[in-house]
Measured scan of single mutants.
Amino acid sequence: DRYEFNINGVHFTIDDAEEELIKLIEELLKRGARAEEIEEVIRRWER
């Protein structure tokens, strides 16, 4: 599934997002994580 979200006006799209990654990102968003922090999480996840 495609997952899309915005952080401070920056648009992100993840194709074939796994449910666990989506939950992790949503938790980070609730905590007010910065875009750079979430980008790093996504990079690590994709390795």
Rank of each mutant, 00 (worst) to 15 (best):
D1M: 10
D1H: 13
D1E: 12
D1I: 15
D1W: 02
D1T: 13
D1K: 15
D1A: 11
D1Q: 12
D1N: 15
Y3T: 02
Y3A: 00
Y3V: 02
Y3M: 02
Y3I: 02
Y3D: 02
Y3W: 11
Y3N: 01
Y3Q: 01
E4Y: 02
E4G: 02
F5V: 11
F5G: 02
F5S: 02
F5I: 12
F5Q: 01
N6M: 14
N6Y: 12
N6Q: 14
I7A: 07
I7S: 05
I7T: 05
I7E: 02
N8W: 02
N8G: 14
N8Y: 02
N8D: 15
N8F: 03
N8M: 05
G9W: 01
G9C: 02
G9N: 04
G9F: 01
G9L: 03
G9V: 02
V10F: 06
V10M: 09
V10P: 00
V10H: 15
V10R: 04
V10Q: 11
H11F: 09
H11T: 14
H11A: 08
H11C: 03
H11Q: 15
H11E: 13
H11D: 10
F12S: 01
F12L: 05
F12C: 03
F12I: 08
F12R: 01
F12H: 04
T13I: 15
T13P: 02
T13V: 15
T13N: 05
T13Q: 09
T13L: 13
T13C: 12
T13A: 14
T13H: 09
T13D: 05
I14F: 04
I14K: 01
I14S: 01
I14D: 01
I14L: 07
I14G: 01
I14P: 01
D15S: 06
D15P: 10
D15E: 14
D15R: 02
D15Y: 13
D16S: 15
D16A: 14
D16C: 13
D16I: 12
D16N: 15
D16M: 09
D16Q: 11
D16Y: 15
A17Y: 04
A17Q: 05
A17N: 05
A17I: 06
A17S: 07
E18A: 14
E18Q: 13
E18S: 15
E18N: 11
E18T: 14
E19M: 09
E19A: 08
E19L: 09
E19W: 10
E19K: 09
E20M: 08
E20K: 06
E20N: 07
E20I: 05
E20F: 06
E20P: 10
E20V: 07
L21H: 02
L21D: 00
L21I: 08
L21E: 02
L21R: 00
L21Y: 02
L21Q: 03
L21T: 02
I22N: 01
I22M: 04
I22P: 00
I22V: 10
I22D: 00
I22C: 02
I22Q: 03
I22R: 04
K23C: 04
K23D: 08
K23W: 11
K23R: 14
K23H: 12
K23G: 09
K23Y: 11
L24V: 14
L24W: 08
L24Y: 10
L24D: 07
L24S: 09
L24M: 14
I25A: 00
I25C: 03
I25P: 00
I25K: 00
I25V: 08
I25D: 00
I25Y: 01
E26G: 07
E26Q: 12
E26V: 09
E26D: 08
E26R: 06
E27C: 14
E27V: 13
E27N: 10
E27P: 05
E27S: 12
E27G: 12
E27I: 13
E27L: 10
E27K: 12
L28C: 04
L28Q: 09
L28S: 09
L28H: 12
L28P: 00
L28M: 13
L28E: 07
L29D: 03
L29S: 04
L29T: 03
L29K: 03
L29M: 10
K30A: 12
K30M: 11
K30G: 12
K30N: 09
K30C: 06
K30I: 11
R31G: 11
R31P: 03
R31I: 12
R31W: 06
R31K: 14
R31Q: 10
R31L: 12
R31N: 13
G32F: 06
G32T: 05
G32W: 04
G32C: 04
G32E: 11
G32D: 11
A33I: 06
A33L: 04
A33T: 10
A33S: 11
A33W: 04
A33Y: 04
A33F: 05
R34I: 13
R34D: 14
R34H: 11
R34W: 09
R34N: 14
A35V: 15
A35C: 06
A35Q: 11
A35D: 03
A35W: 10
E36W: 09
E36S: 09
E36P: 11
E36H: 09
E36C: 07
E36F: 08
E36R: 08
E36L: 07
E36K: 10
E37F: 09
E37M: 08
E37D: 10
E37I: 07
E37H: 07
E37V: 07
I38F: 12
I38R: 00
I38Y: 05
I38S: 00
I38T: 00
I38A: 06
I38W: 02
I38V: 15
I38D: 00
E39D: 07
E39F: 15
E39Y: 14
E39G: 09
E39L: 15
E39V: 14
E39R: 09
E40V: 08
E40P: 03
E40A: 09
E40T: 08
E40G: 07
E40Y: 05
E40Q: 10
E40R: 08
E40N: 07
V41I: 10
V41F: 07
V41R: 05
V41P: 00
I42W: 02
I42E: 01
I42N: 02
I42T: 03
I42F: 05
I42Q: 00
I42H: 01
R43Y: 07
R43F: 06
R43M: 10
R43N: 14
R43I: 11
R44Y: 14
R44F: 13
R44L: 13
R44M: 14
R44D: 15
R44T: 09
R44N: 13
W45N: 13
W45T: 07
W45F: 13
W45I: 06
W45Y: 13
W45C: 05
W45K: 06
W45S: 08
E46P: 15
E46D: 13
E46C: 04
E46N: 07
E46Q: 07
R47G: 14
R47P: 12
R47S: 15
R47W: 05
